[in-house]
Amino acid sequence: MGAWAFYITTLLVYFAVDVLSAFSLNLQFGYAGVVNFGFIVFQAAGAYAAAVVVLGPSGGVASFQQYVFGARLPFPLDLLVAAAAGALLSFVVGLFALRRMRRDYQAAVLLIVSLIALQVVSADVPLFNGSNGLTGVTWPFGEFFGATATGQPWLYLIYSLVICAVVCGGVWWLSRSPWGRSLRAMRDHEDAASAMGLNITSLRLQVFVLGGAVAGLSGGLLVEYIGAWSPGAWGYAETFVIFTAIFVGGVGNYRGVMIGTLLVPIIFLEIPRFLPAIGYPGLTDSLEWVVVGLAWMLCLLFRPRGILPERRLRAPRAEGVALDPAPAEGGA
């Protein structure tokens, strides 16, 4: 495979992973109104979980890397463990971060969780090898197709796209269900939704855990492709890239979210690679974040509902009901 083909394939795998992340965050934020500023932590949890169940038993201090719960699990257990790790961590965090308090406070708590998690994992070397992170993660079909996913990128691309399609289809279906409608009611007016019989605390935790599972799955899928995972991959700013993708594409519209994902984490962040080097080394990389921030601000200023706003769902008509005419003037 040529360099360009490999590059394109890699971008498409990243796209599948990012779409999974964006669908998960859109379910939490776009549908349920949960401002999850700690989203990347749950993706990281899935990535670490998948890594340690693929790497095999830890060699302890004699090994070149240390980690907990080492095992060697076959497909699809590795990804299931990744999803379970994201869900479990979401449940624990959700129990204290999603208490009945204002949404901006919840967002602040989740951002702080993200910062603390990064510091703890970086400092606690026996946990996941500290700031050096884990490496040597192989993909689950090694005995059939070669040791690493990057050795067979086309196969891994198909594998990623199938998982992405199935999971995103499930998220979309749930969003359109009566349960998804309850989430939107909670998003629009918590007190009114509660006064109509919706258990807000439970709904919020459900969507947080479900989104955490999808985030964990996306992390597992990513780490098995790139083969390594370290704190450098999951800084809190990564969460804002996904948020920007959702805002640019259209909050609450999954087609828009896919467009936003293509534009922001893929195209916007890849363009600087092709620009001539300017200024001091590393300046171009730093400008990536400026581009993301500008995209978000411009979107909020000129198209606050994104490229494809949330779709209006027409009411299914009941038999025998004729629409009464709208009052000519005035109205209730």
């Binding site: 009611a185 007016h189 109509m196």
Partner: peptide, 15 residues
């Protein structure tokens, strides 16, 4: 306290 980004029909069935 209507659900602002839901249609009237959706407001009702959600309740």
């Amino acid at each position: 306290s209507e659900f602002a980004r839901m249609t009237v029909y959706e407001n009702l069935v959600t309740a």
